[in-house]
Design a protein around this nucleic acid. Structure first.
Lengths: 200, 200
DNA sequence: GGTCATATGTTAACACTGTTAACTTACAAT
DNA sequence: ATTGTAAGTTAACAGTGTTAACATATGACC
């Protein structure tokens, strides 16, 4: 947090670049994110980013990891709220998933761009596993509990349908003209259809 | 099909470029597709592509449309086969969806890249509506039949879950180490869970 | 068959991209 | 104070989409 009167050293460049990705992606979409653009926004030379990230892809990987954790945070709070008020926790978690995708589409896209990020990155993997764990809630006593990447058909169904909904809303031809509330209503209707299968 | 001895005019450049996109995307992924790369592969100058496509994005839009129609074709044949052999047609259509995504991941990605294609393109829209119609099969006597973009919760559930499965397999952290047969088995298990809801 | 408009190709340039190498500056430990 | 290192700059590289100016083959019309 030290601030020098001389601005040769930025001090928090790594994080500031992430914020720049955030802003540009939010305004103009993930495809518009450019290393030079981020550097210019931060007020720094184009090459400086490479002191903190070996790659553009590395920067986007960290950004994606951040986004996954934001989504997981949102799911966690929704889950806790539902548990306090005695509502269906799984449904709340699923709705949080869709809501995040709708309100931050660029972030949601960045999370799953296999070709734009290093999907083998340890931090990224940890984040996605954390994400998955919230969708496995309610299925604690399923048979396979050893491998955290192994899902029961029920768990896969939950994740698949909510992920499909989010993707179809964000990148698909579904409900393009409709507003956010309508889309959330559709999601709620779809997930309600699903609850008898998931809570058996 | 006429072939001149002088090669100044290529003759089928528009389609050949699409084939180049196909090959490069299959080999190196959609992100590796480059106008100049396609032109070089076809044996033509970089600027020639602009006589047939106003944009890189236009080229990718036509490619995506082509891919959507290929998927729809595959779903149609699966549906007909299932109807002939008395099997569940919807399940067959869904499995064809997942299978296509797994065997042609670059194509599947290209279909839904909102920021890389013109999603308002008429041909693209027609193709996606055709695709959706196969997933609406079996729900013919639902209430809303006027707007082809309007789906019942059941229809949305079918599309969402199958689309989510495909996306999670292609770009997600699910079953990365597993082979195609195992993934198809997972998909089958998930969809089987779903049939009671869909065939009520 | 010759003329000529047009469709379709080429070339050369533009600004922009990610990335690297060589250099410079500030900080922090001795 | 010296000096090694972390973190910035500058200048260059090849590669990208795109355009304008030019060139050539095709096909329609007389």
């Amino acid at each position: 947090m030290k601030k020098s009167n001389n601005h040769y050293h930025h001090g928090h460049l790594a994080e500031s670049l992430l914020d720049a990705v955030d802003e540009i992606a939010t305004q103009f979409g993930i495809e518009a994110v450019t290393l030079r653009g981020c550097a210019k926004r931060v007020g720094v030379s184009p090459a400086s980013a490479f002191r903190h990230y070996s790659d553009k892809r590395s920067l986007l990987t960290v950004f994606a990891t951040r986004a996954v954790n934001q989504l997981a945070d949102s799911m966690e709070t929704s889950m806790l709220q539902a548990q306090d008020s005695g509502q269906d926790a799984l449904q709340a978690v699923c709705m949080a998933y869709v809501q995040f995708a709708l309100s931050k589409p660029a972030f949601f896209r960045a999370m799953w761009r296999e070709e734009m990020i290093y999907t083998q990155d340890p931090d990224y993997l940890v984040a996605t596993q954390r994400l998955a764990s919230y969708l496995q809630q309610g299925f604690v006593n399923t048979i396979t509990d050893e491998d955290p990447c192994n899902f029961s058909p029920q768990e896969m169904l939950a994740w698949s349908s909510v992920h499909g909904l989010a993707c179809l809303f964000v990148d698909g031809p579904v409900a393009r003209d409709k507003g956010m509330e309508e889309k959330l209503a559709i999601a709620e209707a779809v997930l309600t259809q699903l609850t008898p299968v998931l809570t058996q």
